[in-house]
Amino acid sequence: MSERYEPVIVGFLCNWCSYRAADLAGTSRLHYAPNMRPIRVMCSGRVDPQFVLKALREGADGVLIAGCHPGECHYVEGNIKALRRYILLKRLLRQLGVEEERVQLIWASASEGNVLAEAVDRMTEQLRALGPLRWREMVLSGDGHRPSPLPQQAAPVAEEV
């Protein structure tokens, strides 16, 4: 392994779609960044925001939540509930100074191994550029990282941390 920094991503994959997508990526021998460590849940709707926070404070540099496409959830609409929680969670994380790229939600159906692989590769590079999260120093004790500009803004409004 090279000397460069390797981010660690915890992935919450739903049993029916995204976990199988990751299986398919492997079966198809698609090589992608080994930085994502998957945890299986039955549905993306099972993902408690506390899981995400736990992962971040235990040393993960990022968290990926992956579920079925809207309309295709094995449990009808668990993924929609995951989406609602995710949006609210992101607002909280922003206030804590955690960059946007660190917690991501994607949809990947069981036949979309490549979608999952590409998402992991992309996220790995984004986090590599951001550097380690260092939750204790930056979030608990510090003022957090400089948050990345929100999608509506072109640049940070003022030079404040």
Binding site: V41, M42, C43, G45, R46, V47, D48, P49, H74, Y75, G78, K81, R85
Partner: peptide, 8 residues
């Protein structure tokens, strides 16, 4: 069916 949405 065990989806866990309520649990979360």
């Amino acid at each position: 069916q065990g989806c866990g949405t309520c649990v979360a």
